[in-house]
Design a protein around this nucleic acid. Structure first.
Lengths: 208, 208
DNA sequence: AAGTGTGAATGCGTTCACAGCA
DNA sequence: TGCTGTGAACGCATTCACACTT
């Protein structure tokens, strides 16, 4: 299949959210225009995004809310449960471990790890924090597909290397540092300080 | 000045990080190539990014680490302190309030607010949680330029409207919902569940 | 009449390639 | 010689416009 832009995937994910809300409200069909206004985009964009994966609508009518939801879930790989581990049980890691939004979307936290003995043994929303030495063994056993990284910047790259070696193929990084992964592994980063700096730039250049 | 792409601003912010590391290691000059390899980009990209703002290098030699750092801080508006408020003192809000990375970059948390009386009064790293009713009064008094939103999805848009009305011009949203702001206000969103869904898509389409 | 699906046009960020300067 | 600065070429995502379907 043709390579899909990340921006497209991100929007598909948003569309799915709206479709679920729409479904809860009892609507049967929705047009590309309605979907677009929710997501801050255009109807042409919505139709183009969907067209990469097939024809889901009926001309003159729109899209079946339930059918399109199901298709998007299929496309995004959300029809299943993903097992997730979190490495780093500091403030951020703990918040992630207890974040309800993940579970709702099929992402189950199956392990939380830290090196600090003061944190090991604590329980976070039913999952208890284990020593990071148990990481490799647990990955081999539990086969988590996704790892969340919430450790200090300097510890992040060595950790990524360990995770990749153990077989993890997708990583979401919260450490404020760029990381590299071999081909075949997907890495995404969320850098909160960087987001603030972009706001800072916008504020000092407000006259545009 | 010509409008600058967000991707460019994001990279400038990364370059600044490396420059600071480089400076700490005692290096005096750096080439676009060295800067590029750190940030996972190309030397041409680095030079192009910088060229939007002026000429900072010496041909044949490279860039002065300290001079370029200073220029980037100036460009990004980091030469000053920004006052930040956080609305929502749940797990995410609390983690944000205690995040050291913000303070290091000049972002000072001057207020944390919540509607839940069980949370009001708690102290988070020196800042104590206040009732959300005090929001407007405090914004008028403290004049925070930036607000971080960490409230449930359904509470986010009304909150944004209040903040904008009170004079906040930059918002970083952690609620998993799209928001709209009037022109002149900058909004950025971090949606963690969405990031996981993009990873999910990558995993089920690994054969590319 | 209403709204999809899609080739074509557009706009924009990235990469190239090289002239210019230390 | 080494590396910057930048116009030009390129590639890709978005937008347009309209034929087509119900």
């Amino acid at each position: 299949m043709k390579r899909i832009a990340e921006s497209t995937v991100r929007r598909l994910s948003l569309y799915l959210r709206f479709l679920e809300e729409f479904e809860a409200q009892g609507h049967q069909t929705i047009s590309s225009g309605e979907l677009a206004s929710q997501g801050g985009t255009t109807s042409a964009q919505v139709r183009k995004d969907l067209s990469f994966f097939g024809s889901f609508g009926k001309r003159g009518l729109g899209y079946s809310v339930s059918a399109l939801s199901a298709s998007l879930r299929e496309i995004l790989g959300l029809g299943r449960q993903w097992n997730v581990i979190i490495v780093g049980a500091g403030k951020i890691g703990a918040a992630l471990a207890q974040y309800k939004g993940f579970r709702e979307r099929g992402f189950k936290v199956v392990g939380v790890y830290d090196t600090d003995s003061a944190r090991v043994g604590r329980s976070l929303d039913g999952v208890h924090v284990k020593d990071q030495r148990e990481l490799e063994g647990d990955v081999a056993k539990l086969k988590p597909q996704i790892a969340l990284i919430a450790v200090p910047a300097e510890a992040a790259q060595p950790l990524v290397d360990r995770l990749v070696k153990s077989g993890v193929r997708a990583i979401l990084n919260f450490a404020p540092t760029p990381l590299t992964v071999p081909k075949g592994v997907t890495l995404r980063s969320v850098n909160m300080a960087l987001e603030l700096e972009i706001l800072s730039y916008a504020l000092v250049n407000a006259d545009d």
